[in-house]
Simulated assay, not measured.
Amino acid sequence: MMFCIKKVLATLFLIGFTGNILRAQISPPGLGDTKTALWTAFGIKRQLDSLGKKQALSYIAIGRKSNPDDYNALSKQAIFVLNHEVYHSFAPHQQYSYAVSYRRQPQYEGSTPYEKENTEQEFRIYGRYAYTFDLGKKWKLKNTVRQEFRKFFAADFSKVEEDFQLRTRIKSQLTYTVSPKNNQKLAVSAEALFSLSHLNGPDTQWESFGYREMRITAYYMFDIPHSPFTVDIGYMNNLIKDSRSIHRGGVHYVAVDLIWNIPFSR
């Protein structure tokens, strides 16, 4: 009997501990030069050790987007994503992670009626380092550097215009604890993206390294009462350099994530 009580208490503790250590929304990817987009994801978050220092987040997600000249975010299929990331909180306030990802993204013509041209595949690996500052009891500031390698193929694995890309992402996120009830939090962030690409073609060449886009997000996060699930509801504004959308205030995203939290179990 005592063993069962201890096991239940340990499970509840780990669920709560997971929410505090790894409380990161599944932010939308860039879906190109459009007006509006919708991003939905389902993730499974697991504790990998009894101390709560190692976690894994796996998710499946889809995105839809509007045509360049309307605001119907459900108009076209935009992306399909499979992602797996492992996190390690190796020191107070410090965390690193590494991940693999597969993405499948339809490409559309640039003029009306915006018919589908082809499908592009992407295989991605990346690493991330984060440092979190405690700003009082309710505020946290998390600064992150993420380095990515992205390799691109057509649907039949033939070459596409962009061979591969090295991309650096720098992000700051400010999180406010609204209430301990249901672990309610608000988070706002800004992320700048810089990249260097290698292009296929008759004469292979490199693009110059430089700033490409800015992503600004706002999220409300909470736990569903009496369940292991967390919901994230957010908005993202994607400002793409030299795009048509940047003259209209960027691309506007609505994002919804559902995450299933699984405690550590031997």
Rank of each mutant, 00 (worst) to 15 (best):
M1H: 05
M1I: 10
K6W: 11
L12T: 13
F13L: 13
L14V: 14
I15M: 01
G16W: 02
G19M: 14
A24S: 15
T36P: 01
A37Q: 08
F42A: 07
G43M: 02
I44G: 01
I44W: 10
K45G: 02
D49K: 06
G52Q: 15
K53P: 00
K53H: 03
K54S: 15
I62A: 07
R64V: 13
K65H: 15
Y71H: 12
L74S: 05
S75E: 13
V81W: 05
N83F: 07
N83C: 07
H84R: 08
V86M: 07
H88D: 12
P92S: 05
H93K: 05
Q94I: 01
Y96L: 11
Y96G: 04
Y96K: 09
S97V: 07
V100W: 04
Q107C: 04
Y108T: 04
E109P: 00
G110D: 09
T112R: 09
E120C: 07
E122V: 07
Y129G: 11
A130K: 10
Y131E: 02
F133Y: 12
D134I: 02
K137E: 12
K138F: 04
W139K: 06
N143R: 15
V145T: 13
Q147D: 05
Q147F: 06
F152S: 11
S158V: 03
E162C: 09
D163E: 15
Q165D: 04
R169W: 05
Q173S: 12
T175P: 10
Y176E: 03
T177V: 08
V178S: 03
N182P: 01
Q184K: 14
A187W: 15
S189A: 13
L196Y: 05
N200T: 10
Q205M: 10
E207Y: 04
S208F: 10
F209R: 01
R212Y: 01
M214F: 01
T217W: 03
Y219C: 02
D223F: 00
S227K: 03
F229Y: 00
F229L: 00
M236N: 09
N238V: 08
K241S: 10
K241H: 04
K241I: 03
D242K: 11
S243C: 07
R244P: 02
S245Y: 12
H252G: 08
D257E: 03
D257Y: 01
L258F: 01
I259N: 00
I259F: 00
W260A: 00
W260V: 00
I262R: 12
F264A: 03
R266L: 09
